[in-house]
């Protein structure tokens, strides 16, 4: 189901406004990630969608229906909690059945549906176990099945992968995507891990300070950030930020506006020219290799930079010419807003 926020704000009873003018649409059937640092407003936004929190002003629509005043139950959301919140005294099957039991679905129907869901999330062989006998990944699967049991309008997942170890995380994020595509249910999940969001989501909403920084497809967020925060947050290693005065006028003239800082992606810095690039004088201190990854420590003037595309052929500890591919170079004004390339007005 489509979710629409119409200028929604949230103010806590102590008078602090924590979410400012949230205005967005979640397309029906999409998988959307709410991404951002702690305290950015991700979980708060999720709770506003779920109805566990209610908006101070603005309207929330599910499809054409105004659900602003409805509680979580009335909105028909399915939720997977960060710690899964499975009922520890019930078997896996009873956990999945519980929402249907509360909805007075008849016994044979709810059992059949629970078995189907167990199959969907691949815990069919675990249905008679208690949650405590399952691994973290299996508990997560059960929690998803339980959330899907009442055929929710929208599925919400709060930090679904944060309690799992690294390998399970990769497995479960693929699973979440698979289950979402198989059921077609509109899904929103919260994460602070950009790579999780980039890998799984159809669209990412990047939040900071209670504001939407950018709401876009994952690749657009990376290639075309709105502002310095987005450019900084997305990408690993983080964006290299250098004051504009380190560059000559020629570089600053490339951009339309008053350039305050220039951001260079680590993967745009190279010692071999390939694409349109700006030239810069830098000193390469060391180049480390980790499996297929490389990381070079560079300084430009007094600024330390990290580059991933500088080869071991680069001479160390002496002034060299490096190139920063223009597609990975962003200019920002004083307030952090991205400045477009000159003559690049869309």
């Amino acid at each position: 189901m489509e979710v629409k926020f119409n200028h929604v704000t949230l103010t806590y009873p102590n008078g602090v406004e924590v979410l400012h003018d949230m205005d967005f649409d979640i397309t029906d059937g999409q998988l959307v990630a709410l991404l951002g640092p702690s305290g950015g407003g991700k979980s708060t936004t999720l709770n506003l969608i779920s109805g566990l929190l209610s908006a101070t002003s603005g309207n929330i629509y599910f499809g054409d229906k105004d659900v602003t005043k409805q509680d979580a139950l009335g909105r028909g959301v399915g939720m997977v909690f960060q710690n899964y919140a499975l009922y520890p005294h019930m078997t896996v099957l009873d956990n999945i059945i519980f929402p249907m039991k509360m909805a007075k679905v008849d016994k044979s129907t709810r059992k059949q549906r629970a078995l189907e869901l167990a199959q969907l999330v691949r815990v069919s062989d675990q249905i008679n176990k208690k949650p405590s006998d399952l691994s973290g990944g299996q508990q997560q699967r059960v929690a998803i099945a339980r959330a899907l049991a009442k055929s929710p309008n929208i599925l919400l997942l709060d930090e679904p992968l944060s309690n799992l170890d690294a390998r399970l995380r990769v497995e479960m994020r693929e699973e979440i995507r698979r289950i979402q595509k198989e059921t077609g249910v509109t899904t929103v999940f919260v994460t602070h891990d950009q790579s999780e969001a980039m890998h799984v989501a159809d669209k990412i909403m990047l939040l900071n300070d209670g504001r939407i920084q950018q709401y876009d497809a994952p690749q657009s967020l990376y290639e075309n950030p709105n502002n310095q925060f987005v450019a900084n947050f997305i990408g690993e290693p983080a964006l290299n930020v250098v004051p504009a005065d380190q560059f000559d006028d020629e570089v600053r003239q490339l951009f339309d506006g008053d350039v305050a800082t220039i951001g260079i992606r680590a993967e745009a810095l190279t010692n071999e020219v390939k694409a349109p690039a700006i030239k810069m004088q830098a000193v390469v201190h060391e180049v480390l290799s980790f499996g297929r990854d490389r990381q070079a420590a560079i300084s430009v003037g007094s600024h330390q930079l990290v580059a991933t595309e500088v080869t071991t052929a680069a001479p160390l500890e002496q002034e060299t010419t490096l190139f920063a591919a223009l597609s990975g170079v962003y200019a920002f004004d004083q307030s952090g807003q991205r400045l477009p390339l000159r003559g690049d007005h869309a």
Binding site: L73, M79, F81, A85, Y87, F98, A103
Partner: peptide
Amino acid sequence: VDKRLYSAATLDGA
């Protein structure tokens, strides 16, 4: 009792 169980049960329609 884990308070989140109550949230979960509320969402489950209890």
